[in-house]
Amino acid sequence: MLKIENLHVRVDGKAILKGLDLELEQGQVHAIMGPNGSGKSTLSYVLAGRDGYEVTEGSITYDGVDLLALEPEQRAAKGVFLAFQYPVEIPGVSNVYFLKAAVNAVRRERGEKELDAIEFMRFAREKAKVVQLDPALMKRAVNSGFSGGEKKRNEIFQMAALEPRLAILDETDSGLDIDALRIVSEGVNALRSPERAMLVITHYQRLLDYIVPDRVHVLVDGKIVHSGDKTLASELEERGYAELGG
Protein backbone atom coordinates (compact mmCIF):
# COMPACT_ATOMS: atom_id res chain seq x y z
CA MET A 1 0.00 0.00 0.00
CA LEU A 2 2.82 2.39 0.89
CA LYS A 3 6.27 2.10 -0.58
CA ILE A 4 9.02 4.57 0.25
CA GLU A 5 12.24 4.13 -1.66
CA ASN A 6 15.58 5.84 -1.11
CA LEU A 7 13.87 8.99 0.17
CA HIS A 8 16.10 12.04 0.51
CA VAL A 9 14.57 15.22 1.94
CA ARG A 10 16.03 18.63 2.61
CA VAL A 11 14.54 21.31 4.82
CA ASP A 12 15.86 24.85 4.48
CA GLY A 13 18.79 23.44 2.56
CA LYS A 14 19.64 20.94 5.28
CA ALA A 15 19.54 17.21 4.52
CA ILE A 16 17.20 15.52 7.02
CA LEU A 17 16.16 12.24 5.41
CA LYS A 18 19.07 10.48 3.77
CA GLY A 19 17.92 7.43 1.89
CA LEU A 20 14.93 6.07 3.76
CA ASP A 21 13.24 2.86 2.67
CA LEU A 22 9.97 1.59 4.11
CA GLU A 23 7.18 -0.66 2.96
CA LEU A 24 3.81 -0.98 4.59
CA GLU A 25 1.12 -3.51 3.66
CA GLN A 26 -2.60 -3.01 3.97
CA GLY A 27 -3.82 -3.98 7.45
CA GLN A 28 -0.39 -3.66 9.03
CA VAL A 29 0.79 -1.48 11.87
CA HIS A 30 4.42 -0.41 11.85
CA ALA A 31 6.15 1.54 14.58
CA ILE A 32 8.96 4.01 14.05
CA MET A 33 11.24 4.85 16.92
CA GLY A 34 14.34 6.95 16.96
CA PRO A 35 16.19 9.73 18.75
CA ASN A 36 15.06 13.36 18.78
CA GLY A 37 15.80 15.10 15.54
CA SER A 38 16.33 11.90 13.57
CA GLY A 39 13.64 12.86 11.04
CA LYS A 40 10.46 11.10 12.22
CA SER A 41 8.20 14.15 12.01
CA THR A 42 9.87 15.15 8.77
CA LEU A 43 8.82 11.82 7.30
CA SER A 44 5.28 12.31 8.53
CA TYR A 45 5.08 15.81 7.00
CA VAL A 46 6.47 14.62 3.69
CA LEU A 47 3.83 11.91 3.60
CA ALA A 48 1.09 14.45 4.32
CA GLY A 49 2.47 16.93 1.78
CA ARG A 50 3.60 19.93 3.79
CA ASP A 51 5.33 22.75 1.90
CA GLY A 52 9.01 23.38 2.45
CA TYR A 53 10.13 19.76 2.38
CA GLU A 54 12.21 19.28 -0.69
CA VAL A 55 12.45 15.73 -1.96
CA THR A 56 15.82 15.54 -3.71
CA GLU A 57 15.83 11.81 -4.42
CA GLY A 58 13.63 8.77 -4.10
CA SER A 59 9.93 8.09 -4.37
CA ILE A 60 6.76 7.43 -2.41
CA THR A 61 4.08 5.24 -3.93
CA TYR A 62 0.67 4.98 -2.29
CA ASP A 63 -1.88 2.57 -3.73
CA GLY A 64 0.12 2.54 -6.92
CA VAL A 65 0.12 6.32 -7.40
CA ASP A 66 2.94 8.80 -6.96
CA LEU A 67 2.01 10.35 -3.62
CA LEU A 68 4.45 13.23 -4.03
CA ALA A 69 2.55 14.50 -7.05
CA LEU A 70 -0.59 15.13 -5.00
CA GLU A 71 -1.63 18.21 -3.01
CA PRO A 72 -2.16 17.68 0.72
CA GLU A 73 -5.94 17.82 0.38
CA GLN A 74 -5.86 15.25 -2.42
CA ARG A 75 -3.80 12.90 -0.29
CA ALA A 76 -6.22 13.36 2.60
CA ALA A 77 -9.19 12.77 0.32
CA LYS A 78 -7.53 9.54 -0.82
CA GLY A 79 -7.23 8.37 2.75
CA VAL A 80 -3.90 9.63 4.09
CA PHE A 81 -4.23 10.96 7.63
CA LEU A 82 -1.59 12.50 9.87
CA ALA A 83 -2.19 12.80 13.59
CA PHE A 84 0.11 15.73 14.33
CA GLN A 85 2.80 15.67 16.99
CA TYR A 86 1.81 19.28 17.66
CA PRO A 87 -1.81 19.80 16.61
CA VAL A 88 -2.44 23.31 15.31
CA GLU A 89 -4.70 25.78 17.11
CA ILE A 90 -7.18 27.59 14.89
CA PRO A 91 -9.01 30.31 16.80
CA GLY A 92 -12.29 31.40 15.23
CA VAL A 93 -13.05 28.05 13.56
CA SER A 94 -15.23 25.68 15.53
CA ASN A 95 -14.17 22.07 15.79
CA VAL A 96 -17.58 20.92 14.51
CA TYR A 97 -17.52 23.21 11.50
CA PHE A 98 -13.95 22.21 10.68
CA LEU A 99 -14.59 18.50 10.91
CA LYS A 100 -17.82 18.73 8.92
CA ALA A 101 -15.95 20.48 6.10
CA ALA A 102 -13.29 17.75 6.27
CA VAL A 103 -15.67 14.81 6.41
CA ASN A 104 -17.72 16.15 3.51
CA ALA A 105 -14.61 16.78 1.43
CA VAL A 106 -13.64 13.13 1.90
CA ARG A 107 -17.17 11.96 1.18
CA ARG A 108 -17.23 13.96 -2.04
CA GLU A 109 -14.02 12.24 -3.13
CA ARG A 110 -15.52 8.84 -2.35
CA GLY A 111 -18.68 9.67 -4.26
CA GLU A 112 -20.78 9.58 -1.09
CA LYS A 113 -23.56 12.00 -0.21
CA GLU A 114 -22.48 14.94 1.96
CA LEU A 115 -23.84 15.03 5.48
CA ASP A 116 -26.11 17.88 6.48
CA ALA A 117 -25.80 19.60 9.84
CA ILE A 118 -28.10 17.21 11.68
CA GLU A 119 -26.67 14.05 10.15
CA PHE A 120 -23.20 15.27 10.89
CA MET A 121 -23.92 15.93 14.56
CA ARG A 122 -25.22 12.42 14.97
CA PHE A 123 -22.18 11.05 13.16
CA ALA A 124 -19.77 13.18 15.20
CA ARG A 125 -21.30 12.14 18.51
CA GLU A 126 -20.76 8.48 17.61
CA LYS A 127 -17.15 9.11 16.64
CA ALA A 128 -16.43 11.13 19.76
CA LYS A 129 -17.18 8.01 21.80
CA VAL A 130 -14.18 6.26 20.25
CA VAL A 131 -11.82 8.41 22.34
CA GLN A 132 -14.37 9.61 24.93
CA LEU A 133 -13.92 13.18 23.71
CA ASP A 134 -15.68 15.73 25.91
CA PRO A 135 -18.60 16.93 23.72
CA ALA A 136 -17.93 20.50 24.90
CA LEU A 137 -14.67 20.40 22.93
CA MET A 138 -16.58 19.96 19.67
CA LYS A 139 -18.12 23.41 19.95
CA ARG A 140 -14.87 25.12 20.84
CA ALA A 141 -12.41 26.52 18.31
CA VAL A 142 -10.11 23.89 16.83
CA ASN A 143 -7.51 22.93 19.47
CA SER A 144 -7.68 26.46 20.82
CA GLY A 145 -6.79 26.40 24.48
CA PHE A 146 -7.08 22.59 24.52
CA SER A 147 -4.77 20.84 26.97
CA GLY A 148 -2.00 18.72 25.47
CA GLY A 149 -4.00 15.57 26.10
CA GLU A 150 -7.21 17.04 24.69
CA LYS A 151 -5.42 17.95 21.49
CA LYS A 152 -4.18 14.40 21.04
CA ARG A 153 -7.63 12.99 21.67
CA ASN A 154 -9.00 15.44 19.14
CA GLU A 155 -6.55 14.09 16.56
CA ILE A 156 -7.75 10.53 17.02
CA PHE A 157 -11.36 11.74 17.04
CA GLN A 158 -10.69 13.25 13.61
CA MET A 159 -9.07 10.03 12.49
CA ALA A 160 -12.17 8.11 13.56
CA ALA A 161 -14.36 10.53 11.62
CA LEU A 162 -12.26 10.58 8.45
CA GLU A 163 -11.73 6.79 8.33
CA PRO A 164 -8.37 6.94 6.59
CA ARG A 165 -6.65 4.06 4.79
CA LEU A 166 -3.21 5.14 5.90
CA ALA A 167 -2.85 6.76 9.31
CA ILE A 168 0.41 8.25 10.54
CA LEU A 169 0.41 8.84 14.28
CA ASP A 170 3.22 11.16 15.28
CA GLU A 171 3.84 10.80 19.02
CA THR A 172 0.17 10.59 19.78
CA ASP A 173 1.13 9.21 23.20
CA SER A 174 3.15 12.20 24.35
CA GLY A 175 1.17 14.51 26.58
CA LEU A 176 -1.34 11.84 27.57
CA ASP A 177 -1.78 10.74 31.17
CA ILE A 178 -1.99 7.03 31.96
CA ASP A 179 -5.76 6.76 31.66
CA ALA A 180 -5.88 8.88 28.52
CA LEU A 181 -3.14 6.76 26.98
CA ARG A 182 -5.23 3.65 27.54
CA ILE A 183 -8.40 5.27 26.19
CA VAL A 184 -6.72 6.72 23.12
CA SER A 185 -4.86 3.46 22.44
CA GLU A 186 -8.09 1.50 22.67
CA GLY A 187 -9.59 4.01 20.26
CA VAL A 188 -6.74 3.44 17.84
CA ASN A 189 -7.02 -0.32 18.20
CA ALA A 190 -10.73 -0.11 17.46
CA LEU A 191 -9.77 1.58 14.21
CA ARG A 192 -7.37 -1.20 13.20
CA SER A 193 -8.77 -3.07 10.28
CA PRO A 194 -7.61 -5.24 7.39
CA GLU A 195 -8.11 -2.28 5.02
CA ARG A 196 -6.20 0.22 7.08
CA ALA A 197 -2.47 0.62 7.59
CA MET A 198 -0.84 2.62 10.37
CA LEU A 199 2.54 4.13 10.97
CA VAL A 200 2.98 4.79 14.66
CA ILE A 201 5.80 7.11 15.69
CA THR A 202 6.72 6.94 19.36
CA HIS A 203 9.52 7.09 21.88
CA TYR A 204 7.88 4.68 24.29
CA GLN A 205 7.34 0.99 24.42
CA ARG A 206 4.35 1.62 26.67
CA LEU A 207 2.25 2.73 23.70
CA LEU A 208 3.29 -0.36 21.77
CA ASP A 209 2.10 -2.56 24.63
CA TYR A 210 -1.38 -1.31 23.76
CA ILE A 211 -1.04 -0.89 20.01
CA VAL A 212 0.96 -3.96 19.18
CA PRO A 213 2.89 -3.38 15.95
CA ASP A 214 3.65 -5.88 13.22
CA ARG A 215 7.08 -4.31 12.68
CA VAL A 216 9.30 -1.86 14.51
CA HIS A 217 11.80 0.35 12.66
CA VAL A 218 14.58 2.41 14.11
CA LEU A 219 15.21 5.74 12.41
CA VAL A 220 18.58 7.32 13.08
CA ASP A 221 19.97 10.32 11.23
CA GLY A 222 17.51 10.13 8.38
CA LYS A 223 17.71 6.41 7.67
CA ILE A 224 16.11 3.22 8.92
CA VAL A 225 19.05 1.51 10.60
CA HIS A 226 17.25 -1.45 12.07
CA SER A 227 13.93 -3.25 11.74
CA GLY A 228 12.46 -6.05 13.76
CA ASP A 229 9.33 -7.41 15.37
CA LYS A 230 7.56 -5.98 18.41
CA THR A 231 10.29 -7.18 20.79
CA LEU A 232 12.63 -4.60 19.30
CA ALA A 233 10.79 -1.88 21.21
CA SER A 234 11.65 -3.29 24.62
CA GLU A 235 15.20 -3.99 23.53
CA LEU A 236 15.54 -0.36 22.52
CA GLU A 237 14.12 0.84 25.78
CA GLU A 238 16.76 -1.16 27.66
CA ARG A 239 19.77 -0.50 25.54
CA GLY A 240 19.13 2.86 23.85
CA TYR A 241 19.61 3.73 20.20
CA ALA A 242 23.39 4.00 20.26
CA GLU A 243 24.10 0.28 20.10
CA LEU A 244 21.99 -0.18 17.02
CA GLY A 245 24.34 1.90 14.97
CA GLY A 246 23.67 5.34 13.60
Binding site: P72, E73, A76, G92, A101, E109
Partner: peptide, 25 residues
Protein backbone atom coordinates in the same frame (compact mmCIF):
# COMPACT_ATOMS: atom_id res chain seq x y z
CA UNK B 1 1.07 28.41 6.86
CA UNK B 2 0.73 25.90 9.69
CA UNK B 3 -3.00 26.47 10.00
CA UNK B 4 -3.43 26.30 6.25
CA UNK B 5 -1.60 22.98 6.11
CA UNK B 6 -3.59 21.59 9.01
CA UNK B 7 -6.87 22.28 7.21
CA UNK B 8 -5.58 20.92 3.92
CA UNK B 9 -4.26 17.80 5.63
CA UNK B 10 -7.91 17.20 6.55
CA UNK B 11 -8.96 17.19 2.88
CA UNK B 12 -10.23 20.77 2.85
CA UNK B 13 -9.32 22.33 -0.52
CA UNK B 14 -6.81 25.15 -0.33
CA UNK B 15 -9.13 27.90 -1.55
CA UNK B 16 -11.78 26.92 0.98
CA UNK B 17 -9.15 26.65 3.71
CA UNK B 18 -8.00 30.18 2.90
CA UNK B 19 -11.49 31.57 3.21
CA UNK B 20 -12.13 29.68 6.43
CA UNK B 21 -9.03 31.21 8.00
CA UNK B 22 -9.74 34.65 6.57
CA UNK B 23 -13.21 34.67 8.00
CA UNK B 24 -12.00 33.26 11.31
CA UNK B 25 -9.65 36.22 11.60
Amino acid sequence: AGQLFYLRSRAIPEREARDILTFAF
